[in-house]
């Protein structure tokens, strides 16, 4: 998780001691900043969201305004915020956007920028606990350790960043239609209400057990054990990768993993045979505990 990256909060201050912005400028600046990954709080003296500026500990803040008097000094008594205040009285939208970039860099703040190379697209499963029955199918299925359990042995999403962008495979194996990917195009995976016909369709899903003769980890474990004995005298990383690739290809052919996702997978990043065996043991223990 990119915990080290925080969206910078920009406050468009249009309250007392300032003049409001033109509508076009306000819209242009707000939309552009949002599209770059900033969050924007507009503060006016009218009702809604409070004239009080709400800030959050640890998140850098840039206050912009057309101040009618001396520019106010905004300080954080607790010393927990990085705040910069700038007067935009003589600036147009483009100049304001440039100013924000400069100030952000001065504050040493980084952004997860939409559409930029290296930016993380927020693609990860979201569990609907009103539907989830804790069957662990998703945990069994996912090869990338996205899922885990909490201290009460309840399934949870633990590693968002491990999820493969645009792959909704785990939601397709969920027998309760409880896994959503909000950025997916169609329902119910995108979060639309689950309809009766969706449930009927889900009941016709390929059973993972029938697909691979057991859960994914058991299957991979068996494969890795066979491979281990086969290659015990001349273990080859390439052959191990081929083995994993064959397994994934089988999943892709079943329609569970989109071909384009499979094509982008870095096979060397897949779990090692040892990790697969460890995971299989953990799953077996979890299931025993549930019985």
């Amino acid at each position: 998780m990119k915990n080290e990256i925080h969206p910078v909060q920009v406050i468009l201050y249009e309250g007392g001691g300032s003049t409001p912005w033109e509508v076009d400028c306000r819209l242009s600046v707000t939309a552009s900043l949002l599209d770059q990954g900033y969050s924007v709080l507009r503060v006016t003296e009218a009702a809604g969201n409070g004239a009080a500026m709400r800030t959050t500990r640890g998140i850098p803040v840039i206050v912009l305004g057309r101040f009618t008097g001396p520019m106010p000094e905004v300080v954080d008594g607790a010393g927990e915020l990085r705040i910069a205040t700038r007067d935009t009285a003589s600036l147009g939208a483009e100049e304001i956007l440039s100013l924000v970039t400069t100030v952000r860099e001065d504050l040493g703040a980084d952004l997860n920028r939409p559409g930029q190379t290296g930016a993380w697209k927020p693609w990860f499963p979201v569990i609907d606990y009103d539907r989830c029955t804790n069957c662990m199918q998703c945990l069994s299925f996912c090869l990338f350790d996205v899922y885990g359990v909490d201290e009460d042995k309840r399934i949870q999403v633990q590693n968002n960043d491990n999820c493969k962008t645009n792959c909704p495979a785990c939601s397709r194996v969920c027998p309760e239609v409880a896994i959503m990917f909000p950025k997916y195009a169609s329902g119910p995976i995108n979060g639309e209400l689950v309809k009766q016909e969706d449930l009927a369709r889900e009941s016709m899903k390929i059973d993972i057990s029938s697909l691979l003769g057991g859960d994914i980890y058991s299957s991979l474990k068996n494969r890795s054990e066979k491979a281990k004995s086969r290659f015990s005298k001349e273990r080859s990383p390439d052959k191990a990768l081929d083995e994993r690739k064959r397994c994934l290809t089988q999943l892709q052919q079943s329609g569970m993993i989109p071909a384009e996702v499979l094509a982008e997978l870095d096979l060397s990043s897949l779990p090692s045979p040892e990790a697969i065996q460890r995971k299989a043991k953990e799953l077996a223990a979890l299931r025993e505990a549930q019985v």
Binding site: T30, G37, S39, R42, V43, T44, A47, G48, N49, A51
Partner: peptide, 8 residues
């Protein structure tokens, strides 16, 4: 009005 907007 005042309002909060977020990128995502």
């Amino acid at each position: 009005i005042s309002f909060e907007s977020v990128a995502d």
